[in-house]
Deep mutational scan, measured.
Amino acid sequence: ETQAGIKEEIRRQEFLLNSLHRDLQGGIKDLSKEERLWEVQRILTALKRKLR
């Protein structure tokens, strides 16, 4: 995994995270989306740690 590859994956995950946040802010309670949001946040945290 290169730095560029990790950064690209971070961009993808952040896009997905923002999309999930928008969907959930629409007021629709969706447990699967909430679980996915937490999963994406965990992935992002792990990726950012790899960059250090």
Rank of each mutant, 00 (worst) to 15 (best):
L20F: 02
I28C: 10
L31A: 14
I28M: 08
R42W: 05
I28G: 09
L44T: 00
R11M: 08
R52A: 13
G26Q: 09
E14D: 02
Q3S: 07
Q13G: 03
E8S: 07
R11L: 07
K7G: 03
E1D: 12
K50I: 15
S32A: 14
R12H: 04
N18E: 15
E1R: 07
E14K: 05
K50D: 02
I43Y: 10
E1W: 11
L47S: 00
E35C: 13
R11F: 04
V40S: 02
R36D: 05
T45K: 11
E8Y: 05
T45M: 10
K7D: 03
R52C: 13
Q25C: 15
E9S: 04
I43M: 07
E35G: 04
E8W: 05
I10R: 02
L37Y: 14
L51Q: 01
I6N: 01
V40P: 00
K48D: 01
L47K: 00
F15N: 14
I10S: 01
G27T: 08
A46P: 00
T45V: 12
R22Q: 10
L51H: 01
G26I: 08
H21R: 15
Q3D: 06
A46C: 14
H21G: 04
W38A: 14
G27P: 09
L24P: 03
R22E: 08
S32N: 12
L20Q: 00
R11T: 05
L16S: 01
R52F: 10
G26A: 10
A4I: 12
Q25Y: 06
L37D: 00
S19V: 10
T2D: 09
R52Y: 12
V40Q: 02
Q41W: 15
Q13I: 15
K50C: 13
K7T: 05
I6S: 01
L51I: 03
F15A: 15
L31F: 09
H21Q: 14
I6M: 03
K29P: 09
E1L: 10
R22K: 12
H21Y: 15
W38I: 14
S19Y: 06
N18F: 10
A4R: 10
S32T: 09
E39N: 04
W38H: 12
R52G: 08
K33S: 05
G5L: 14
E9P: 02
E39M: 06
G5W: 15
G5K: 14
D23L: 10
I6R: 00
R42Y: 04
L31Q: 13
H21I: 15
L44S: 00
E1P: 06
S32F: 11
W38R: 14
L20Y: 02
E9H: 12
L37G: 01
R22I: 07
G26S: 14
L44K: 00
E34Q: 14
L51M: 04
R22H: 09
T2G: 06
G26L: 13
E34K: 11
W38T: 09
I28S: 09
R36Y: 06
I6D: 01
H21S: 11
L20H: 01
W38M: 14
R22S: 07
H21L: 15
E8N: 06
E35Q: 13
E14Y: 14
L16N: 02
E14C: 15
W38Q: 12
R52V: 11
I43C: 05
Q41M: 14
D30F: 02
E39Y: 03
L24K: 02
I43N: 07
E9D: 05
L44G: 00
R36V: 07
G27M: 04
Q3R: 11
E9R: 06
G27C: 06
G27S: 07
I43V: 08
R22D: 06
Q25P: 03
R22T: 07
S19P: 00
R11K: 10
Q3W: 10
A4W: 09
